[in-house]
């Protein structure tokens, strides 16, 4: 995997949570606090990142699929800026070892 991933790379892949067994979390006031046993770390996720996390818990997904699901939940059209936000979230998830693109 190239460490600095381009947008095209991010968009073309299906994403999954990395070693989700034993994940445990809380959602308080739109903030998610997630303990990831695989990395041993606790992560704080804002509302969008938290929703992406929940969607990935449910099933593997692409940027487009995640953006559509987010739009659907918020009852808004799937815009480009939503795609950008999802991309950012996934890049961050990749950095912290929470999710990865399926090779």
């Amino acid at each position: 995997m190239c460490p600095a991933m381009g947008d095209v790379d991010i968009d073309s892949r299906t994403w999954r949570l990395l070693e989700p067994a034993g994940l445990t979390w809380r959602c308080w006031d739109d903030e998610y606090i997630v303990f990831h046993p695989w990395s041993g770390m606790t992560h704080y996720l804002d509302a969008i990142a938290g929703t992406v996390f929940e969607l990935l818990l449910d099933h593997d997904a692409t940027v487009r699929g995640l953006a559509a699901a987010l739009a659907n939940q918020a009852d808004t059209p799937a815009t480009d800026s939503l795609n950008v936000a999802v991309r950012q979230v996934l890049r961050r998830f990749d950095e912290i070892g929470l999710a990865e693109p399926i090779p």
Partner: peptide, 21 residues
């Protein structure tokens, strides 16, 4: 807020990381 309280309690860590789950 609850997440705020969580942050405050774990902020300076002590052995929070080591005790894991």
């Amino acid at each position: 807020g609850k997440s705020e309280a969580f942050r405050l309690l774990t902020a300076s860590g002590m052995n929070y990381y080591t005790t894991q789950r």
